[in-house]
Design a protein around this nucleic acid. Sequence first.
DNA 1: TTACATGCAAACGGTTTGCACCCGG
DNA 2: CCGGGTGCAAACCGTTTGCATGTAA
Lengths: 148, 148
Amino acid sequence: MKRMEDRVFREFLQKKGLKFTKERAAILKGVFSARGHFDPDDLLIKMRGKGIRVSKASIYRTLPLLLESGLIEQVLKVDKHAHYEHTFGRGHHDHLICLKCGKVIPLYSRKLEKLQENLCRKEKFKCLTHTLEIRGYCLRCNSKSGLS
Amino acid sequence: MKRMEDRVFREFLQKKGLKFTKERAAILKGVFSARGHFDPDDLLIKMRGKGIRVSKASIYRTLPLLLESGLIEQVLKVDKHAHYEHTFGRGHHDHLICLKCGKVIPLYSRKLEKLQENLCRKEKFKCLTHTLEIRGYCLRCNSKSGLS
DNA sequence: TTACATGCAAACGGTTTGCACCCGG
DNA sequence: CCGGGTGCAAACCGTTTGCATGTAA
């Protein structure tokens, strides 16, 4: 009774000429038994608690692979290496971020802001600020390269 | 010919019983002469380049004040201390994050997703993924406390 | 005059890396 | 058998902090 995500990951690794080791299998299992968010350390502690021994390094090396394979998403990147921009006298806006050239394109949509407000109201959540980052390829990079 | 943001910052500091030092004035000026994004180190280097001497520590201590005063916004918090969640077999969703209790409430809106797609199309941006984080107070925390 | 601020350098802490050994294909 | 993987511990590096000194109000 193999789990679906096992197959996905295995095939992803195979395609890249990488190996499906028992450590990677264990990490995958740990990730998928997490109920909500986790950070690498959470994961390590939880696995240790279950008597599974993997190194912190392996976790750090495996998570990007899971990310790349689409099995997990990165959320809530907090605190470290902060970037800022001054907004006084300018409006709030969100960002389109090109994954190839790193260009950051500001984006503002009144409709988008309104919609977010409505959603918060529906959840009875008092919204103070928000950050929207859309990642992908800008026109220039998208046309330049055949594919990702 | 004092700049508007000087006044705003000065008043903000005064209200908190803090001082408007020449270093803080210099940092403010540096921040407002930045064209786009910057990180603390960018700022330091740029200021050094102009012969302005402030310590890295002062920059790190001043940016949160500027943030709190509403003069700048934090964007693109990258890389460090990453959080993940597995998404395979579950849908993509965004997050409401309570600044008091830290609770994370998943949020999904088809309308929101669609709108983002449209905006990208308009910008000729090939969207791959996005992250939306709305920060504020959850129902429980918002009603519990008098004010922010 | 007296908190509060500054600069410096050391400490912190999450993440990455070098290396010797291990193992999946 | 071999190229990639692992664990360990050290290195990294952005950020924070302790402390002696400086200064705005």
